[in-house]
């Protein structure tokens, strides 16, 4: 027991003697939370739209004004030339083109049918999908409105023919992205702390050769491993606490669940992550090798954690992998703490 204490004291001395480490420990949660939670948002707010209106009718103007009124769209190009609109997409000035053909209003009135064309820049598939969704919903809305105004003689009939869907987003009522990101980032933070730091620390002993001197002392294996891991469990808990202290008030994250449960789950999660860090450190002989190795594992962890892509949409094998990569589970537990019970 005393030996572990001596190793711990030595480890903490070394950690705090390294100014880089101290700065990183403090700065990492702050920067990650503030930058990522604010900037890494999936909401599309500024879709630049190019409009080619060849009809110039009152209906086409009404449709365009719908887009103009939407907070999601900014009209960056408006002309009669389809080529010009394409060029503006090529120059990255617009993200999508809406083309209203000649006789749009006439067809609509006479045949009850008219055609519109969307072209969306799909270099980034994710934002193209969201753009499409927004545009469709504006058109649908507009469609419903003109059917109502022109075709339905009475209000009763209009009501009878419409199916309206009312929906509520549970647990995160307004779909505030920050509230989703904060627990996710904290999970990533704990993962980085648990996987990188103890591994690096252990490999450093190998690289510099100090392990040789330790090996000839009566220090036992479990004492050495505990002495090496405990400091980072403590640091990781400190990081989690710091992250909660900053994240909760900064982003108004609601706190519903119990901190005790969160810290217990974090503790279990850390043990698993530290185990991986320890395992990786046995494969590597230099810190450089270990950096590369843990980076490789870490990227898979983060991508499969569900923070950037929903795990539900992954293929079967991906979902099994997610179960193995318990990062996702840890995040889920955090959501439970933060806002799972908001509506009840």
């Amino acid at each position: 027991m005393r030996t572990i204490f001596f190793i711990l004291r030595k480890e903490f001395k070394q950690i705090f003697r390294n100014p880089m480490m101290v700065r990183l420990i403090i700065a990492l949660p702050i920067v990650q939370l503030i930058v990522l939670a604010n900037a890494a948002t999936m909401d599309l707010k500024n879709i630049n739209l190019a409009i080619v209106d060849n009809d110039l009718s009152s209906i086409s103007r009404q449709l365009i004004s719908k887009f103009e009124g939407s907070p999601f769209f900014t009209i960056t190009y408006r002309d009669f030339s389809e080529k010009g609109a394409q060029k503006s997409v090529a120059l990255n000035q617009s993200d999508a083109i809406l083309i209203i053909p000649v006789n749009f209003q006439k067809d609509l009135l006479k045949n009850d049918k008219a055609k519109l064309q969307f072209s969306i820049n799909a270099i980034n598939g994710m934002s193209a999908g969201i753009t499409n969704y927004y545009m469709q919903s504006i058109i649908l809305d507009f469609n419903k409105k003109i059917i109502g105004e022109w075709k339905m003689p009475t209000k009763e009939l209009q009501k009878a023919k419409n199916i309206t869907v009312t929906y509520a987003h549970w647990f995160n009522k307004e779909l505030i992205f920050n509230i989703f990101m904060v627990p996710g980032i904290l999970a990533v933070l704990v993962t980085i702390m648990g996987m990188f730091l103890p591994g690096l620390n252990l490999v450093r002993e190998k690289e510099i050769g100090t392990i040789e001197q330790i090996n000839v002392t009566p220090i036992k294996k479990y004492q050495f491993i505990l002495g090496k891991l405990l400091p980072f469990i403590i640091i990781a808990f400190f990081e989690l606490t710091l992250g909660l202290f900053i994240g909760i008030p900064l982003f108004n994250v609601p706190v519903i669940g119990s901190f005790f449960v969160l810290y217990s789950v974090a503790g279990i999660y850390l043990l698993a992550i530290l185990g991986i860090g320890l395992l990786l450190s046995t494969f590597a002989n230099t810190q450089q090798q270990l950096m590369f190795l843990s980076y490789f594992v870490l990227i898979i962890f983060i991508l499969m954690s569900g923070i950037f892509t929903p795990t539900e949409s992954m293929p079967k094998w991906g979902q099994i992998l997610v179960l193995l990569i318990f990062c996702h589970k840890f995040m889920r537990y955090q959501f439970t703490l933060f806002y799972q019970l908001v509506l009840q």
């Binding site: 070394q14 003697r17 001197q213 000839v216 009566p218």
Partner: peptide, 18 residues
């Protein structure tokens, strides 16, 4: 053995940051 031997490796193997 580890209790009764003192070993000094060829390469300096003490903690440089202590």
């Amino acid at each position: 053995i580890r209790k009764i031997t003192g070993y000094m490796p060829g390469k300096f193997s003490l903690y440089q940051d202590l």
